[in-house]
Amino acid sequence: MKFAHWLTGTVFGASMLLAGAPAHAVTIGFSQVGDEGDWRPAFSKDMQDEAKKEGIDLKFADAQGKEEEQLKAVRAFIAQKVDAIIIAPVVVTGWEQVLREAKRAGIPVFLADRDVDVTDKSLTVTRISADFNLEGRLAGAWLAQASKGQCNVVELQGTVGAAPAIERKKGFEAITSQFPEIKIVKSQSGDFTTEGGKKVMEAFIKSTDNLKGICGVFAHNDNMQLGAIQAMKEAGLNPGKDFLLVSVDYVPAMKDELAKGEASASVELRSAIGKYIYPVVLNYLKDKKELPRWIKIPSDLHHAAAPND
């Protein structure tokens, strides 16, 4: 298998260069959403591993998906007078009060993953997270290149209204709309699940007469793509060979599919992102220099050993 890296320019490089170990051990509180799915536990583990490497005293709190647990954890961090707080928010709203408490205590707050909705933007230093829009653009760019700008695409959307679904779709369309010969001919929600992806693909197969004239499948996540691959195989189609399949996440099962050549490409949603987050925090603690509102973590695209590559 061959990996190609699609790095995009971010403001990252600069802040990373300035990273250096502080004099005393820094204490950071990290409030995590919970441990659902594959990605989040891996993210938590990486944050803990990276903290050890950096010599950071990490206080980790799992909110078990509950808003009030998370607020409790953040207040506990404030009481313990940690040097900085990192929050992966459970929900977008209801943060004003507790963030103000942190500010009053002089503790800078960083967001990982999701954003929060507050009127006073100075309550948080910055948000460090993957860029769903970029993931969509990467997928779109790869598909445009692989199909030489000519492709009828069916799309498996994530849960209606979810931020990753909205942004990945936007990003994908931002690129593909540049190519007049690339069209999204069918688009449905597979709810980010394997079962959903399979169901929707089965319906697509029927309504397009066995995917006649279709060249590509874009799925907002790998789980749905895995379902779609099953549906295509059960209908006697050859995913990965007769169709270009691109999705987002790069979960272990997708690695296998890429190796088998039944999927074409997957944009990695990195879980090992501690190495992007901690330097930003540490640097800020040193020189308190204003940072951009959003620091984007780069994304990679992995694709199968394509015969025409």
């Binding site: 709810d191 980010f192 699940t193 394997t194 079962e195 379902g227 099953q230």
Partner: peptide
């Protein structure tokens, strides 16, 4: 039937 269908089980979403 459902679990064997997708060859996977996801306790968070299956049968939601």
């Amino acid at each position: 039937i459902l679990t064997a269908d997708t060859h996977t089980s996801d306790p968070v979403t299956s049968g939601l």
